[in-house]
Design a protein around this nucleic acid. Structure first.
Lengths: 338, 338
DNA sequence: TTGAAAGCGTTACCAT
DNA sequence: ATGGTAACGCTTTCAA
């Protein structure tokens, strides 16, 4: 049943040309006359030819493929990051292979190895929640293959990265809560290994300090930022005189807020709320959630573009450190208009 | 800077063995003594060897890779489907390559072609919203490469597919609304090319018929089921004596419901609401949304497992048609407890 | 403008 | 238990 694959040799024989000419003709090399090129393409089409990527990659010693590893395929944010990266890579004639770590470093390591064996030309990464040691990326770095981090990046500032200013965003959102009258603000955040969470906490602390509000360690709740975690956090928060909550993502903020409402807390009168990400859910809860918006598609585009630049330059490891803008979006949950 | 790659020839030379033995030793072939195997693996490791997938694929004429094409990486549902498929494929020693069509058939076609050129051994697909003609999959089918559809599948029932019973789910949810007292139910749905939407509509119609309620075409709103579309739908629904809305996904249900609330409609007193998918958002709106839950991880597992079975059997095109269960989850939006 | 031929790194058949 | 060797299908240098 399975037909034998058509190769450039078959086309060559049919046309009375050499395989080299076919190879060149197929990719429009200038030494092949346009008429011959057309003839070659037509017969290739007619014979059902498809180029063999493996043979080509084997011979050329590169794959024209870049990889991207993200924590999870579960948000509009990630879908947009990938769409942005795909747009850029495709336009440049590269393929993109994609995988999710599901927030576990073990899976991240396996993904890295697979991509390494697939000999991708470059790698984009947003780290899993629990990744501490990042030596698995040395596989690439040791060979001079560029690795570019985005959003969740390693602590080492010298590594190439595309981020937003999380400290600033945390500072702005906390300052906003203080301006609304909050004095006892709980911050719910994630694993402090991740810059996105550690920096937002720093911003929170800075805002408190600037307004002469005492920093209380018991006001920091570190959890997995999941829907469940938000519900649990609500139970820790209630009846403690807390007047505002800033959670490091919208999902957790929303589930926590709803649980508190269920327990009789009035938002924002008794307690103001803020999240992070501007997910769809933030606009559709009651009251609507104050949050930080950040540019996903653009982040993907910029990350991919930077990586490709390094690839073209062949100048080894990139050294970019791009900081994108983010904006505070004020909504009813933080007492807007109260 | 770039070190030359280590090949099995280098290992062979170092060990005074032949390349064939190295090749066999590396994959634990039984004809190689365990002692030699260990020696081979150790030296490979020490020399920084990595196997060359391209050479292997070229030689073996298969890739041990399967592809998956989905509409978008933006829901927990999809993240779980992929995780399920990955679990199964990885355990079987296959790689999974993943891409999103972003709901456009043009992108879907490009994805199919890329996967075809990457010579995947099998393909899993959930169709884009606007895919009408599915002849782009003939690329695979003509070569006897199995293609298995899941969730959003083509109309032709003979094609292998993994689905839930959407008609039944639509019927159950509509019946539930009727039982709550609804008589004038609007159904918001998506492109009728997609079984998931067409079948839910059929279920809706069947439920009306069984309860002697007249089917009114003007009660069917077909749109993109997006957040925006939900908001627009709200404006069409209001002041028309509508007493219930069943939307074919939670996102659209939620944004529509919220817009109606904003326009002064009381949910569920004036109008009952139901969605579809059991997304996180459905549990976190006010009132909580009645919806249909369906098994994502399991769907990915089953789809992948079926595809792999076909691959092993080499019996050409699979002919499965699996129907998974789904459940109605009743919440306050449909008047529970009123 | 075209052709010949070497080689990319494996695997698998056939020997030994 | 191990070795020799011919493919796999393409690209690219050199030659014509």
């Amino acid at each position: 049943m399975l037909h034998k694959e058509v190769t450039i040799y078959d086309i060559a024989r049919r046309l009375g040309l050499s395989p080299s000419t076919i190879s060149r003709g197929l990719k429009g090399h200038y030494t092949v006359s346009l008429k011959t090129q057309q003839k070659i393409r037509d017969t290739a089409e007619a014979m059902g030819y498809r180029s063999n990527t493996f043979a080509a990659n084997l011979r050329r010693q590169r794959t024209n493929t870049i990889g991207i590893i993200i924590p999870r395929f579960n948000s509009y944010f990630m879908s947009e990051v990938i769409a942005g990266a795909e747009k850029v890579t495709n336009e440049a004639g590269y393929n993109l292979i994609i995988s999710q770590s599901l927030e576990h470093v073990e899976k991240e390591i396996r993904n890295v190895k697979t991509m390494f064996n697939n000999r991708i030309d470059g790698l984009l990464v947003s780290l899993a929640e629990d990744t501490r040691d990042i030596s698995h990326f040395n596989l690439f770095l040791d060979k001079g293959i560029p690795v570019l981090f985005f959003d969740r990046v390693p602590p080492d500032e010298r590594l190439p990265a595309i981020v937003i200013d999380n400290e600033k965003a945390g500072y702005i959102i906390t300052t906003h809560l203080i301006a609304q009258g909050a004095q006892n603000i709980v911050h719910i955040t994630g694993n402090q290994l991740r810059n996105v969470y550690a920096d937002r906490l720093k911003g929170y602390q800075k805002a408190l300090a600037e307004h002469g509000i005492e920093y209380r360690p018991e006001n920091i709740i570190i959890n997995g930022l999941s829907e469940q975690a938000g519900i649990q956090a609500a139970r820790q928060i209630i009846n403690r005189g807390v007047d505002a909550v800033f959670a490091a993502n919208d999902n957790c903020a929303v589930s926590c807020m709803n649980e508190l409402k269920k327990l009789g807390v009035n938002i924002p009168r008794d307690m103001a709320f803020a999240g992070f990400n501007n997910d769809m859910i933030s606009r559709n809860v009651d009251p609507q959630l104050t949050t930080i918006n950040y540019p996903a598609f653009e982040m993907g585009e910029i990350a991919a573009r930077n990586l490709l630049e390094q690839l073209e330059k062949k100048t080894g490891i990139p050294s970019v450190h791009v900081i994108l803008n983010s904006d505070l979006i004020v909504r009813a949950s933080s007492g807007f208009g109260k």
